[in-house]
Design a protein around this nucleic acid. Structure first.
Lengths: 246, 246
DNA sequence: CGAGCCGTTGAGGGGATTCAAGCTCAGTGG
DNA sequence: CCACTGAGCTTGAATCCCCTCAACGGCTCG
């Protein structure tokens, strides 16, 4: 018995590995990739998952790079950018808490977009080979992965329908709605720079500024700091409805 | 030996099942879902796959419906629509030859979009339960499914970057480029009704008409019938480049 | 042949862009 | 201490692109 203990990793003697603790306590676990795994399953993988933080505007990965890892977002917002044939960039999707990003790495494909931190991030880095190994026998994991893919597809199609459709004011309103979904209820939202709003909604930064200011005057939006604001969710939904009726 | 033959399905005695022949000869098989399966694998599944045809504007499935099947497109073009909060509809993606659509059925989720035939279609209908069973042991199939999901995601993000960005003329040009990709080289492309172009590119039908006519006068596009046209691919690429430079 | 759908084209107006100026704020150095 | 600078944001004015409204032609079909 004592000898069995002796061959275990030194940091497992008595207490669990710190990352195992982190995974077990992780608040996003139920909605995250390994939610389907039990404690034993977690113990098998935790040593190879690495928690890391990133600052706003840092790049997780670049388009074209062949990634060796995926990331689960524990807190924060990530944007996916592509640069068009002209020099200008276009933001095609946002991801937030609980989302698994960089899925194309599992298929040995190069990354389709630049992935860039919008807010300070807390991430879990999951090596691709880890999922390759688990994928052999964990049907639940396979299913969870497919759900992630479908979630991303849903988001992308909703982006076309909601954020790339209609007059500029409508698009700004729907962007604010999406931003509230990426934030804990009651918390201030991440408010993008005007240039980023332009890259999301395909409008000039002056237009973005005009509508943000307009909504501020209407009392629907109040800015609480740089890159931070509060929205009156009820008024926002009313405004969207009014916009769609007219 | 003879007794073994006797217990086989009656239509397998001597010749193979007609659908088995169809699957084995299928030109899109190499790029389709079951490309990874060998002849024996095909034999196991072919009786439950049903070939079917659809006419333009027929609906494969509707948003909200919980699908019992997926479809492989053998020939033709399918569009995915959502209706926005206002009554108007928005086409968010196109699919063509070799694409597998309705993936969300595998997750017991309701369909995210309406799927509607643009051209005459030849489809293979794949029951959901069939993939559930195969999924148990076919790792190659799992991988193929994930690739389908990533393909769809790529298409959707490219839609945002290419077809929902920039001035109207640019969007029409890029739509034509996308339509050539959905057609065999040399064949005339499917040219949508002006109203559909509007729903794809978020523009008025008059604007769609104006740019189509403009491109026709420029010799870049020639209409060969209703819903059918030929494009000068070289001129098209030049026009896109010129558009992006200005 | 009239009705209806689809496509085309023109005229006018409105919304978004472009061009331009001025503002706040943080960082820098005289 | 304060001018200087540059980045980000805001606002105004002029322009232009696209939408709306409208009229018309071709075509199919009852």
């Amino acid at each position: 018995m004592a000898s069995r203990m002796a061959v275990m990793p030194i940091d497992r003697a008595g207490t669990r590995h710190p990352q195992a603790e982190a995974c077990a306590r992780c608040a996003v676990r139920s909605q995250s990739l390994f939610g389907a795994l039990d404690e034993a399953g977690l113990d098998r993988i935790h040593t190879r998952i690495e928690g890391l933080d990133m600052a706003p505007d840092e790049t997780l990965y670049a388009r074209g790079g062949d990634g060796s890892a995926l990331y689960t977002i524990r807190t924060g917002v990530v944007r996916f950018e592509r640069s068009t044939a002209r020099g200008d960039r276009r933001i095609v999707r946002l991801a937030g808490r609980g989302d698994l990003i960089g899925l194309e790495a599992l298929l040995q494909r190069p990354h389709a977009d630049d992935a860039i931190a919008c807010t300070p991030l807390q991430l879990c880095r999951i090596p691709r080979v880890l999922l390759d190994e688990l994928g052999q026998d964990e049907a639940a994991l396979t299913r969870a992965l497919m759900q992630r893919w479908q979630d991303a597809l849903d988001q992308s199609e909703a982006w076309v329908a909601d954020l790339a459709t209609g007059p500029a004011r409508r698009r700004v309103l729907r962007l604010l709605l999406r931003l509230t979904e990426l934030t804990e209820p009651g918390q201030p939202i991440w408010l993008p720079r005007r240039e980023d709003i332009g890259a999301m909604l395909d409008m000039a930064i002056e237009s973005a500024s005009r509508f943000v200011s307009q909504l501020r005057r209407e009392g629907l939006l109040s800015i609480t700091g740089p890159r931070s604001a509060r929205v009156d969710r009820v008024a926002l939904l009313q405004a969207i409805e009014a916009q769609d009726r007219s």
